[in-house]
């Protein structure tokens, strides 16, 4: 499904502030697998997702989606197959446009935008139905501007928008980290529901080790641009957060700072 072959990403190559964010990362994710990714700040988790989404070009290696080499595709072209939810709820939605307009934009993912009417009546009905499933009362606010919604509502909408067209791949970049614990739980449950409903392939970056082990089928740990741990079910299901922390400490020396970061609920 998704395959990365020795992918290297260097920021400011050759410059005085050169930084290697990914070092020859190889990864294969089969169809329908949900992978959680953990690691300290600067480990390369977000860079990994951005490189897959095409936000950054890569210096070495190749990226394949469904057997097709997409390494040189621009971001908007890859977006036809890749849904994304960002950490900041304001980044995944257009504040000055209404709820239904945002969904209509998402409905046309990867399609040519022509001079056809932007929202059809059937779509409006479909959106209401989908919004009702969120259980946040958004189905009665489809004409409201998204900027008027709360952070949690916006993020739930962003999850819905990212998955509306059942993309081949879903990338979640700490998408519950900016929310309060209760809202985070609601959004996470929603995410899990859509993923299993559409049997999506997904990569989820998280700061929360407990979350990393609880969700999905496989967990990756990254450190300094490398994948230092790759563990799948059923072995993974026996793993505890403390084990993970131990492994992490073995791999990295600067444990104290990371322990604080990794155990904080998010």
């Amino acid at each position: 499904m998704l395959k990365l072959h020795r992918v290297t990403k260097i920021f400011n190559p050759g410059g005085p502030d050169e930084r290697v964010a990914l070092r020859q990362v190889s990864l294969e994710v089969p169809q329908g697998q949900v992978v959680t990714i953990i690691g300290s700040n600067g480990a390369g988790k977000s860079t990994l997702l951005n490189v897959i989404a095409g936000v950054y070009s890569i210096e070495e290696g190749a990226i394949f989606l469904k057997g097709q080499d997409i390494s040189s595709w621009p971001e908007y072209r890859r977006a036809a197959f890749i849904g994304r939810v960002f950490q900041d709820p304001t980044r995944g939605t257009a504040a000055s446009m209404t709820v239904e307009e945002n969904l209509a934009l998402a409905m046309r993912r990867g399609k040519r935008r022509a001079l056809r009417w932007g929202i059809t009546p059937e779509e409006r009905r479909y959106f209401k139905e989908q919004l009702a499933q969120l259980g946040l009362g958004l189905e009665d606010r489809i004409r409201d501007k998204v900027g008027l919604l709360s952070g949690g509502q916006r993020q739930a909408l962003a999850v819905l928008m990212a998955t509306l067209t059942k993309p081949k791949l879903l990338l979640l970049d700490e998408h519950t980290a900016a929310l309060d614990p209760r809202t985070a739980k609601v959004v996470m449950e929603l995410t899990q529901r859509v993923i299993s409903q559409h049997q999506l392939t997904a990569l989820m970056v998280t700061h929360n080790m407990d979350q990393a082990l609880r969700y999905g089928h496989r967990t990756l740990m990254m450190h300094e641009g490398r994948i230092i741990l790759d563990i799948s079910d059923p072995l993974r299901s026996q793993l505890k957060v403390s084990h993970l922390l131990e492994m992490f400490e073995q791999a990295s020396r600067n444990s104290l700072e990371d322990r604080i970061l990794l155990t904080s609920p998010g």
């Binding site: 977006a79 257009a94 993912r109």
Partner: peptide, 14 residues
């Protein structure tokens, strides 16, 4: 309109 509102978001929608 989405380009003016949130360029990154609309690019991530293709």
């Amino acid at each position: 309109r989405a380009t003016g509102d949130n360029e990154q978001m609309i690019r991530s929608l293709g």
